[in-house]
Amino acid sequence: LYAGVITRPESQQWFAQSLPKFAAAYDYTAIMAMPYMENEQPLSRKEAARWLGKLVAEVKRSNVPLDKTVFELQAVNWRTKQPVPAEEMTDWMTLLKKEGVKNLAYYPDNFLQDQPPLKTVKPAFSVQR
């Protein structure tokens, strides 16, 4: 599901997507939680984290249970064609978990180049952290 469908409800018609309808029809709904892709203007690291916080707030406002969502983070900033630093991704994961998000994913996974570095992101997937 495109994040814009959640943050800009008028776009539901353009994409024929709706978080509540997807959540009712599927076990899980993956949300493309990709701040560097969704915004027209380049974001700073701080603005990207703030954007993710707003996205979670909108999902909560929708009354769709967070345990029925998967927040899919971006591992590459496609505007700059550079990997998102693993430390930034783990900060995003920590922020999302503090907000009650249980299911996390990232894309793309370049396991051949160890990007993002598994030793850095793997501990952030734990609910114990």
Rank of each mutant, 00 (worst) to 15 (best):
F15L: 10
L104K: 02
T80W: 12
P65Y: 10
W14E: 14
V70L: 02
D114A: 10
S44D: 12
A25E: 13
F15V: 05
K81I: 09
S11E: 15
L95M: 06
A75S: 11
Q12W: 08
Y36C: 11
V101W: 02
P65N: 05
D109I: 10
T7Q: 09
W78S: 13
E88C: 08
K119W: 13
Y36P: 00
F71D: 04
A16C: 14
L118R: 15
E40I: 13
N103H: 07
A33M: 06
Y26K: 13
P83N: 10
P123E: 06
D27Q: 14
P20E: 06
V101M: 09
A57P: 08
A86K: 02
M93G: 08
D67S: 02
W92R: 04
L19V: 05
T29S: 10
R79E: 12
K68M: 08
V5H: 04
K98Y: 09
R50F: 14
R61G: 03
P83V: 10
M34E: 13
Y26W: 14
L43M: 12
T69G: 06
A16I: 08
L43Q: 11
P35F: 05
Q17Y: 09
A124K: 01
S44P: 07
V76L: 13
A3F: 06
L43S: 11
K21A: 14
P42G: 10
P85V: 07
K97M: 00
M32C: 11
L19E: 06
R79V: 11
T7R: 11
A86P: 01
P65M: 09
V76K: 12
Q41A: 14
R61K: 14
E87A: 08
K119F: 12
E88W: 00
L104Y: 00
Y36L: 11
L19G: 03
K119P: 04
S18Q: 09
N63H: 15
L118K: 15
P42W: 03
Q74V: 02
F71Y: 08
K60W: 07
K54A: 14
F15D: 09
S62F: 01
F22Y: 15
S11C: 07
Q12I: 03
A24G: 08
L43Y: 04
R129Y: 12
K68F: 02
W92P: 01
A3L: 01
E72C: 12
T94W: 09
R8T: 12
V101D: 03
A16G: 12
K97I: 07
K60H: 05
L66K: 08
R50E: 15
K122G: 09
Y106T: 05
V127A: 15
K54I: 09
Q82D: 13
P9H: 04
Q17S: 03
A86C: 05
K122A: 15
N103L: 00
P85L: 04
G100D: 03
R79P: 06
A30Q: 09
V127K: 14
P85R: 00
Q17G: 00
I31R: 07
K21N: 13
N103R: 06
S18M: 02
W92G: 01
G4R: 01
L19K: 10
K98I: 00
Y106H: 10
P9C: 01
K102E: 03
P65V: 06
L96T: 07
R8S: 13
N103I: 04
Q17N: 06
G4Q: 03
V59C: 06
A124R: 07
V84G: 01
P85N: 03
W78Q: 14
W51R: 07
L95R: 04
N63D: 13
P85I: 02
A105I: 00
A25Y: 02
Y36A: 11
